[in-house]
Design a protein around this nucleic acid. Sequence first.
DNA 1: ACACTTAGTTAATAGTATTTACTAACCATC
DNA 2: GATGGTTAGTAAATACTATTAACTAAGTGT
Lengths: 396, 396
Amino acid sequence: MHNAFTPHTSGDLNYLKSLNRSTILSTVRRSPGLSRADIALRTGLTKATVGSVVQALAERGWLREGELHSRGGGRPGRALYLDGERHYMLGAEVGVKGLRLVACNLLGVVLASIHQEEPPTDPATTAKRLAALLVQLRQAPDIVERRCLGLGVAVPGPVSPKAPILSLAPNLGWVDIDFLALLREQPDLPDGVWLLDNEANAAAFGEFYFFEGVPPESIAYISAGSGIGCGVVSGEHFPLVPRGHQGLVGEIGHTVIQPGGALCHCGNHGCAETLVSGWALREALHVDIDASLSNAVQTRAGDGEVQAVMKRAGEALGLLMLNLHHTLNPSMLILGGSLMKLGESLTGPALAYFGTHQNDLLRQSQTVPVKVIGDSTYVAARGAAAQVMARAAIEV
Amino acid sequence: MHNAFTPHTSGDLNYLKSLNRSTILSTVRRSPGLSRADIALRTGLTKATVGSVVQALAERGWLREGELHSRGGGRPGRALYLDGERHYMLGAEVGVKGLRLVACNLLGVVLASIHQEEPPTDPATTAKRLAALLVQLRQAPDIVERRCLGLGVAVPGPVSPKAPILSLAPNLGWVDIDFLALLREQPDLPDGVWLLDNEANAAAFGEFYFFEGVPPESIAYISAGSGIGCGVVSGEHFPLVPRGHQGLVGEIGHTVIQPGGALCHCGNHGCAETLVSGWALREALHVDIDASLSNAVQTRAGDGEVQAVMKRAGEALGLLMLNLHHTLNPSMLILGGSLMKLGESLTGPALAYFGTHQNDLLRQSQTVPVKVIGDSTYVAARGAAAQVMARAAIEV
DNA sequence: ACACTTAGTTAATAGTATTTACTAACCATC
DNA sequence: GATGGTTAGTAAATACTATTAACTAAGTGT
């Protein structure tokens, strides 16, 4: 199984143990600083169970004790935190424009990263390049003495839910690539969990798993770059990413939102990607394929044509957000991807459209919060690392 | 919890037992006639565990033994089936046009049903009507001596995922109704599990749970009636229905597929419901609100205007199916709801549009199968009953 | 009649979380 | 500064789970 977490269907005692261990771990992840007693209260487990599990997790370097609580009353509890010192996870993104790698700790803090701006060529060569960068990354001083939990790789296309295989990467021209197998042929690579996932799914998972602040119930992460995809995550203790029958969940770039509209490279007319995506904007703005889109937009900011194109693209994005709201209904939307570098000119119309249209159905005053990530360079790579952690946590 | 099945987050030994019991039950449901040894092989449980669980389930009237296998080799196994004789579940649909009730057994066979074509008025009166019909239904000869597992109610609008409350039923003018509470005030009602769910979700659950033939991996059930909604189900042993933050998952009738199109009652322009829904078709064809839509379409079948309207509506439905494919990616689509009575004139263009557009993305030869349910009178009610069974199975 | 094979049950075993009783530690008050 | 009250955490005994290993049951083929 390459999923971050696939619930077992039938259970032995081992499964029960691992379930409770993961539950306790995720409780601390989502609410750092709880005491054993707090955890027992929240999870419904007994103090005794929590105590023994916490002890085991502390010995293995997953949890550490912190300061004493001071709530008055009786004996103060001992705060518990994820231990950020003894492990790390590797995450990599094979992007259309280059490779991105991170190593991060259990708290989601990036300990080291590498960003190489050079488009992938063929799968085998790319695997070789990636392997070399991984070796380099693992030599960073703060990493060498830690234990590696595994490696997650994010790729720009749908991954089969049956096996960790990249079905299609339209912008790379790759079809049915077993990228992890290619990677495994390389020397000096880490042990542990190895996972492959779609870039938007990985990003969504990471943003959900390492969310700072009150954790949302579920999120949809819209990745707007060369193409446009979307990842969905929900689940308190075991965040699940729906993938669907062929791994096409969240391929919203190819939902038709303008019947009879422009021809998409997928063969249909009026796909969302014909309105809001890297290649659609380049075409509409006559920007060269290698030139920086955001530079072009900024230098021609006063240009009426540019403003019109951006408004149209932004509203298409807002419409996608609205349709997502009525289809997957996440409790939070996150916008990421390289297109977010275009800033207000894109997000302005998108948020305006979404804001003015979203609440007509239920007539509730509450709005779905939207978070925009300006620089999402390492978001997918870190998300892949997060998936490794989630998977490793059920084994420990 | 009003969900059919909410996985526990932390587990005691009771939970483990119930998990294995449900797993075994669902294995027999999906593959009737397996032996204990077959089940052990499929689930990974040991023969001893399967044996003891099967014994308990047989004593309680959930499983029954059947014929001996004849596979040659050693001692033949004893076929196991769900026991259709000792229990029943009640399911009811509060529809825009009337009330529908079923009682069915563990195999999904409808033992008795009542269909009352009279639109609901206010919630309290409707609850009273429904309660009376339930009493009547339970007096059917094949039902009185059985044990009732509970009651599921399907309603025409989103249900809050937090509590069993109908948030909004636009076609009834109901807002935030605790229908089960109103029902509970009535006399002579059954004990057991009580559930409330959206009509499309209930229908989807039932079609998945009681699927005849090789069970699909996941399905989306599109309910096209006065409005247009959709339910999604996946999960081998514990079918899950995603509901989302506000219960809006599958509200595809309000996805915008024609920007700047006709005004929808939700306030937006170009929602799918403005193209394909009962009220949109009535309006386009100048059919009276109470008259039969299918009669009108059939009598004017040669009419060019009618054909054009139906083609446009059908293609909008096909487009919705396509967008669903790229958003939720179910392994099977099921079309139901009262609009299916319009037959080929609607489904023809829909299937044609979906068929010619669906495979361009992955370029795989496999197509997503589509099943059309012509008469879906009791589909939602039976689905609500199925949810009761799924819920009761984890308690037994 | 016999060996062979597979199905299913039984009793002993290992492992899980819980229960119950305990110790630890802090606070307020006398 | 000792004492009682309160909450946190641990330890040992207990109840319950699924597994293991050995068994019986019931067919087929020679």
